[in-house]
Design a protein around this nucleic acid. Sequence first.
DNA 1: GTTGAGATTGCCT
DNA 2: GGCAATCTCAACG
Length: 208
Amino acid sequence: MTNYQSFYTNRETTAIAKDLLGKVLSYRSEQGVVSGYIVETEAYLGQQDSAAHAFNGRRTAFTEALYGQPGTIYIYQLRQQYMFDVVVQDEGNPQGVLIRGIEPLLGRSIMLRNRVIDGVNLTNGPGKLMQAFGIQSKQMNMQLLENADLTVKLTTDHYPAQIAASTRIGVNANGATGLQPYRFYVAHNPYVSRMKKSEMDLKRHGWS
DNA sequence: GTTGAGATTGCCT
DNA sequence: GGCAATCTCAACG
């Protein structure tokens, strides 16, 4: 267990999901470095969470990465879209945090080229941000964030003025934990998915 | 500006 | 065969 990995264990997954807000997600692409501040996350609590891929201990090639060490990359494909989770908790405990939105920092022109659409639509969704980064394969699945071209920097100069919570998006609401408030986001930040224009803070973007 | 349904691919979530 | 942790765009208010 490295120091880097200790961030991703030893406390509740919901606490880790909140703590990731404001951290910088960075990718060394072939076109150059692209990065952004994390503004939206969702916690998935593994075997007891009816909305989680690893509910009831489901373990297949699809979900294998979730069972890896803390800080492992979990990339999966859904309807032509790639999505990215950070695996949290100790090896064998299949919990994860889905990164749902980022505020662009470096390489904005690269993201524009990859997405061909400007404004908040550049990165305000889990599939959108992967498109913007130009990650369109599962090549980095199961790698450690620490060693991969995709990393999360755990120091930051951005802190949410307020963290909001809600139910998770797109999950089956009928399960036991389907309506738990495990989605966390920087209140009023424009790059949060489904953020209403009338609620956006266009000056400070919700940072303190 | 906001909401709803269709698109469309891989795996059994 | 059916469904999935989404995106896009057309239609409505």
